[in-house]
Write a protein that binds this DNA or RNA. Structure first.
Lengths: 95, 95
DNA sequence: GTGAGTTGATTCGATTTCCGAAGCGGCAGG
DNA sequence: CCTGCCGCTTCGGAAATCGAATCAACTCAC
């Protein structure tokens, strides 16, 4: 239930999603997230750091922990579903 | 990506989660969601209705569509992960 | 049929969150 | 030095969220 609360906050899902490919720096991460506000990004990152989903490397780059990588795995069915969702909505509006 | 936006809104994940057991009325649904604000609940419900994840029955009760049920299925890995997450955080703070 | 209780739904002012742009100090290279 | 990039902070305004009051419709008891 706490998970639904954490991920119910804007950008948290997206940030985990964008960190899947490996360590990313602060400003680069911001750009990947549609240039979201830097203030909110920092806020979200501390939340994810506290939740032990994200770690900060010696070179200050951010990356997923093992736990965080588990989230990404758990998120993949949702990504697969979103494809079905998109096509279902697409058939709606056409013709 | 639109899915991350929709579910990045507060309560949307929770509402889908709470509708898993079948049709629920407006006020009952509100109570299940920690007595969330009724104004926001209505707003979220119209969003979910527009997204075809939720339908309103003749007796005005809300229930998941087939599409909405797919979301719930896609959410179950996340629920399973949250258990591992909870125990990992639990070991942290103890002793 | 009238009065009390419940339900889905709306309104509105207050609070919280989010945004975005500017700016900070630190650290490169030229 | 100066310029440019970096992680990060500050702050004022905009937007989302809240909470409580309220409405019309419906039920049920009496």
């Amino acid at each position: 239930m706490a998970a639904l609360d954490l991920f119910g906050r804007r950008w948290n899902l997206r940030i985990v999603w964008e960190l899947q490919h490996g360590p990313v720096g602060f400003r680069a991460l911001q750009q990947r997230c549609d240039n979201m506000s830097s203030s909110v990004l920092r806020q979200r990152l501390t939340e994810l750091l506290d939740a032990h989903l994200v770690t900060q490397q010696p070179d200050t780059a951010y990356t997923l922990t093992d736990l965080g990588h588990g989230v990404y795995q758990a998120l993949r069915p949702l990504a697969r579903w979103s494809d079905a969702w998109a096509s279902a909505l697409g058939e709606d509006g056409e013709h």
